[in-house]
Simulated scan of single mutants.
Amino acid sequence: MDEPSRTAEAPRPGTAAWWLARESEPARQRRRRSLTLEGILDASMALLDDRGAAALTMRNVAEALGCTQASLYRHVRNREELVTLLIDRAISVASTPPPEDADWAEQAAWSARLFREHLRRHPGVASLLRGTERLGPNSLAGMQYGLALFIGAGLRPGLASAAASALATFVIGSVHFNLGLDRQDPEERRHRRELFRSRDAAACPLLVQHAEVLAEVGSDEEFEVGLTALLTGFRALIEHADHA
């Protein structure tokens, strides 16, 4: 069965208009009481983890749940809506409260590492985050958390919002950049050394000269350097705001 087509007037899933419309619409009839939106999202996440984003179709979700696609459409109209809701729920981990005695920088670093590890455990989720608006209830809770963190540190609201968004973008980008790579694998590191050393020394002298060191740099080191650089920049913004 094909997915129901979206009318020209219907807002695109994930936009602010779509979230507002979803919250204001009456509850959809559900003939199959055992089928819930949470159950659909659970099955979708399991499918995503086991088989990847390409396997996340309405047909496959229905098969996993032992129901018809028509039953799914009483909860979500199409795959685009399903992905939007799934992503928003996955983002909720970023709102987990950090240790109470941590300062703003320690809280930001704690949340960034937590979110990154969650995405690394669920690479299918990370692959679906491209261009996804973060406007669902869990995403807005995360936005509230980020605003409170950076406004509390001394930034004005607009700059605090940009800082929180920059941190989230960095985390997501760091995971995207390394999807499918395992730099801890000794064989991968050996191949990297061979690749760097095999370059033309006249064209790529630094790759050849530092092949041993470069092959050992992993995604964790890259992430921590980037995180430190961001936090250092945020501190400079905060100090500037204090003296403005």
Rank of each mutant, 00 (worst) to 15 (best):
N78S: 12
E80L: 09
E81T: 01
E81L: 02
L82P: 05
L82Q: 08
L82T: 08
I87W: 06
V93T: 09
S95H: 10
P97W: 09
P98D: 08
P99V: 08
E100F: 03
D101Q: 14
A102W: 08
W104H: 07
A105T: 03
A105G: 02
E106N: 01
A109I: 05
W110K: 06
S111A: 15
R113E: 13
L114P: 06
F115Q: 12
F115N: 06
E117Q: 14
E117K: 11
H118N: 13
H118I: 01
H118S: 15
L119N: 02
V125Y: 09
A126E: 10
A126H: 10
S127P: 07
S127T: 08
L128F: 02
L129I: 10
G131F: 11
G136Y: 02
P137F: 07
A141L: 13
L147I: 04
A148N: 12
A148P: 00
G152R: 10
A153T: 09
A153S: 04
A153N: 06
L155S: 07
P157H: 03
P157N: 05
A160R: 07
A164I: 03
A164S: 15
L167T: 10
L167R: 00
A168C: 04
F170R: 00
V171N: 08
I172G: 02
I172P: 02
S174Q: 15
F177D: 13
F177A: 15
N178T: 12
L181R: 15
L181K: 14
L181M: 12
D182N: 11
Q184C: 09
D185P: 06
E188W: 09
R190F: 11
F196P: 00
R197T: 03
R199G: 08
R199W: 12
R199Q: 14
A202S: 10
A203V: 08
P205A: 02
Q209N: 05
A211S: 14
